[in-house]
Simulated assay, not measured.
Amino acid sequence: MWSRNDPTLFIITGAMAAGKSTVAKARVQRFPRSAHVGGDAFLRMIVNGGAVMGPVLKAEARAQLTRRLQ
């Protein structure tokens, strides 16, 4: 049986402006120990070679997205 003290990872995805950050922030507030790391934090970590993610993905962007989701 799951308890609030079990390590848990929630990944919330969706279209831009769909309310992902709002849902994520509300979700983490329900736990005694929690963190919310937004996608923009990961983008700021990329120093060189980050591909642009958009409605049409080039081959490199698709490859990077695939690696992130593995």
Score class of each variant (00 low, 15 high):
23 V>Y: 07
6 D>V: 09
32 P>C: 05
28 V>K: 05
19 G>Q: 10
58 K>D: 13
63 A>P: 02
25 K>S: 08
18 A>C: 14
59 A>V: 00
45 M>D: 08
62 R>A: 15
53 M>K: 05
23 V>F: 09
10 F>W: 15
66 T>E: 15
56 V>R: 11
61 A>E: 03
8 T>D: 04
60 E>I: 05
35 A>M: 09
48 N>I: 04
6 D>W: 03
59 A>D: 13
3 S>W: 03
68 R>N: 07
62 R>M: 11
1 M>E: 07
59 A>M: 03
24 A>R: 06
13 T>E: 10
69 L>G: 04
15 A>D: 02
23 V>A: 13
26 A>L: 08
3 S>E: 02
25 K>A: 13
51 A>L: 05
70 Q>I: 00
11 I>V: 15
29 Q>N: 10
15 A>P: 01
13 T>I: 14
38 G>K: 06
27 R>H: 04
17 A>W: 00
31 F>S: 03
22 T>M: 04
3 S>R: 11
12 I>L: 14
20 K>G: 07
66 T>P: 01
37 V>R: 12
43 L>W: 06
46 I>C: 13
64 Q>M: 05
24 A>F: 10
55 P>H: 09
42 F>Y: 15
62 R>Q: 06
1 M>D: 05
57 L>G: 05
43 L>I: 14
27 R>D: 00
33 R>E: 15
67 R>Q: 09
7 P>W: 06
69 L>E: 13
52 V>C: 01
6 D>G: 00
52 V>N: 04
54 G>V: 02
27 R>S: 01
20 K>H: 08
10 F>I: 12
30 R>P: 00
7 P>I: 03
41 A>V: 14
69 L>R: 11
9 L>G: 03
65 L>V: 08
34 S>V: 08
69 L>S: 04
41 A>D: 11
55 P>M: 11
58 K>Q: 12
60 E>R: 08
69 L>D: 10
65 L>D: 02
66 T>N: 12
47 V>C: 00
21 S>Q: 04
11 I>C: 14
